[in-house]
Write a protein that binds this DNA or RNA. Structure first.
Lengths: 237, 237
DNA sequence: CAGTGGTCTAGACCACTGA
DNA sequence: CAGTGGTCTAGACCACTGA
């Protein structure tokens, strides 16, 4: 244990948040309680909590206390639109059409599935995003049921899997892969576009700590869509 | 002045870095000097410097001092490949072909140009990126000469504008826009692809503080390319 | 080996805000 | 109005490392 004390305290709390022991909205111990627990000065616990606040994992409010932040850890860094929000911002009506929904074990021969869920169970969801009943994107998604067990009960006739996950599961790491492809066959038909139409293929993986949450591949119809990302240094304070 | 003292100190140093008064590699005042200058305790200046280090603007080394970081502010957040690096990683030979190079005043009627350079001068550079003499991407770039005057003297037969900027100019904010388009006409011909080929159109703007540095639009040939971005929370310490 | 940053203490006063 | 976090002080000891 050559790690500084403030860093050990920070990691202990972070681990509880990522494990879900401290769920979004939960109140953390006060600085006074953490001082007593670790037998240290207030500046030391303050440094640990401030680092968590800077990283976006914790909200600190005077008189009220420190709380686990609601899932929006990523919002300062990445602004890939939730399709529903984006469609409604254009004044169109959004609808998610569920095509298939299956639960099965992860295939150990598939690198994607093994990395996501090991040998655990997967929820696979296929669907189409519509704007004013015009198809905008086809989506193929895998979700690790070990990481998100409560998703079994969700009705995806009412909300898309992406929107549900965004509101319920905090993520800490993500990888995004974007390419241009020509829509072919079934995908082109589902998008109601001629074969050969230039589409954006977006592949995204999301983790909470070391645990995979979801893998998703979307094919976005033609040049209907821009993906926009903004980047800047993290501001302290 | 209701800002905390540590935050005022942080901003003062950040402003000097962004203005270029403190160029990359320059040594900052020591904590002792900053204490004397601001008449405060060491913890206060330490907080300001630590925040700058966490944001990636400053490197701190024991015994040596604190230094303005070399331009790599963004590397933790965004990994959009420098095309030259990416091509060489595949074991191919990279070449940048300069097509046009002109200097002119920014057009106030163009929102892009006005936002980049106000009424100042622009360097416009058009070129093609090649891998093993096969065209990979066409690029159209604008650079604000007020922000980067030393670029007038650079020979882009030897290095691409993007690689030069990456090595010489630190940026703090960036916006990236990605869409799928079908290559047509001149662009398709320069990429040596049939019209209608699905391509990635990448548009990117970069700032240093409030000053625009560059705007660039690249058309990446077919599915030769993935763009990959990784995201995670900033770690303190 | 001396100067620098890294960490930590044991206090203090204050600003804010929800019970 | 009392509890919480925000800031700041004036020290201390230590680890590291380049002159």
């Amino acid at each position: 244990m050559s790690l500084p004390l403030h860093e050990r305290i920070r990691r202990e709390i972070e681990a509880d948040i990522l494990a879900g022991t401290l769920p979004p909205g939960a109140r953390l111990p006060t600085e006074l309680e953490l001082m007593a627990r670790h037998g240290c000065a207030r500046m030391t616990v303050s440094k640990a909590l401030s680092a968590l606040a800077t990283a976006g994992l914790v909200d600190r409010r005077k008189r009220a206390g420190s709380f686990v932040a609601r899932p929006k850890v990523h919002s300062m860094v990445l602004d890939i639109p939730d399709l529903a929000v984006e469609v409604e911002r254009r004044g169109q009506r959004y609808r998610y059409e569920l095509l298939h929904r299956t639960v099965r074990a992860a295939d150990p021969a598939s690198p994607v599935e093994a990395a996501l869920a090991g040998t655990g169970e997967l929820l696979r969801i296929e669907g189409v995003h519509h704007a004013d009943d015009r198809p905008l994107a086809v989506e193929d998604r895998l979700i690790s049921l070990a990481a998100v067990p409560e998703i079994r009960a969700v009705d995806f006739g009412l909300i898309s899997p992406g929107a549900w996950l965004l509101g319920h599961v905090p993520w800490t790491e993500a990888e995004l892969r974007v390419a241009a492809v020509a829509a072919e066959g079934e995908a082109a038909a589902r998008l109601d576009r001629p074969a050969g139409t230039a589409c954006l293929a977006v592949e995204r993986r999301t983790w909470r700590g070391a645990d995979g949450i979801t893998w998703v591949r979307q094919l976005l119809s033609g040049s209907d869509f821009d993906l926009v990302a903004s980047f800047g240094p993290t501001r302290a304070g």
